[in-house]
Design a binder for these strands. Structure first.
Lengths: 224, 224
DNA sequence: CAGACTTTGTGAGTGCGTGCACAAGGTGGA
DNA sequence: TCCACCTTGTGCACGCACTCACAAAGTCTG
């Protein structure tokens, strides 16, 4: 049951990485309920996936289960946190103090697990100094200074689409390694920077696609 | 170049459906620039994907390109919109009038393409009547009535995690066919209902995973 | 009108992710 | 100590999606 060093075991598939947070959350819940041991079956149910997948996913982290028993919830939680880097502190900067930026800054659950919003920036002088989630909005022109001095590693883009690429470039130039983009635009970053996007319009359009199909099944008139 | 009826051609892969909104957006941009014809190469660049993928994706919709020339931007735009159901009007209800719910309600780009927020609901009596994006916040208890009378097809959950499943159940019971969940919890819905989730904590944790790996590459100390 | 050129549409090969099914391994009771 | 039982960890087969590479099909030029 020895801990394995991070990184030097076989590569963890992307799909697995994307599920680890689900297990993490599920384990937090079981912890609150005082459960000390979980089976892959139970964990699968809580995370909404297949039990075999849970086992395979967890096996990438190491052999942390006990056959015939299950996984020690607390220990497994610790291992996943370690793997995800949640035992560390990740300073986050939010660029864009509009509705979305403010909502994100106020979002609980950021600070909770290692992610700490250390600055909210905006290019609009009107917004400067406005208090958002206990922080005064700062100038976008101070980006580089802020990122360096506060050791920011993650940047969140919550600007209108037309500003997103410029912001991304500035974040990358300032040394940020990860970007979460909420702007409805394609942004490109160098390969050594991680980028993920959250796109409301896209999500709705996907839903609309399937909704349309169902509607057509109910009353199969000629489309349009 | 005949239009094909929606639905009765070979099944469109999920991955393709998820990319159609990207092409749609790219085509809107080219349209604004006055470009009338686009090649798969160009479209690929704008959407940030591979050109062969673009062609294969579009081929699921029909043969709407011209060899040696490319795709007629406007016509293709129309076809994608039709396929995604964007020529229709999709009334949307947002449940949860907190920071996130308000930000979502104010988000431009919803109304833009067929998605219209027709109600913002909240269970907290304090929030009743507060104006959000031009709408007065209504009571969660009125959900069923509102959904039926306003023909709502899509529900957005922007509540705290502990309320999410209850809200989802209510939405489903009221006849909503698609749900977009922003709450950081697993919710389960019947198979005939489409559900997608947007999870900030998960996204950050995924970024943190890769950030950690990069940090360890730079200074390979023992982990932790 | 013919031939060079451009770009689509798709067949085929490959790799990743999923899920089944089972052997391996550990527990607890008799 | 042995046996029945339980749950993990994984080998294997399958399917989906991605990419390459090229034939098909249209345009343009001389």
């Amino acid at each position: 049951m020895a801990e394995r060093p991070i990184g030097d075991r076989r590569r963890i598939p992307e799909a697995t990485v994307a599920r680890l947070p689900l297990y993490y959350r599920a384990l937090l819940e079981t912890g609150e309920m005082g459960i000390t041991t979980v089976s892959s079956e139970r964990l699968a149910e809580l995370a909404g996936v297949n039990a075999a997948k849970v086992r395979k996913d967890l096996s990438y982290l190491g052999s942390y289960g006990t056959r015939g028993v299950g996984y020690d919830a607390e220990y497994l939680l610790h291992q996943i946190a370690r793997e995800l880097g949640l035992s560390q502190d990740w300073p986050v900067v939010i660029v864009g103090a509009g509705n979305l930026g403010q909502a994100l800054a106020n979002y609980r659950g950021f600070g909770a697990r290692g992610f700490r919003v250390v600055a909210v920036l905006d290019a609009d002088p009107e917004k400067l100094g406005v208090e958002v989630a206990g922080l005064a909005v700062e100038a976008f022109t101070d980006l580089a200074r802020i990122i360096e001095s506060r050791k920011v590693t993650i940047g969140i883009i919550a600007t209108p689409g037309h500003a997103a690429q410029e912001v991304a470039d500035a974040l990358v130039a300032a040394g940020v390694g990860s970007i979460l983009n909420f702007a409805p635009t394609l942004i490109t970053v160098p390969p050594e920077v991680s980028m993920r996007k959250v796109d409301l319009a896209t999500e709705l359009q996907i839903l609309s696609f399937y909704q349309l199909r169902r509607a057509l099944l109910d009353q199969p008139r000629a489309a349009r």
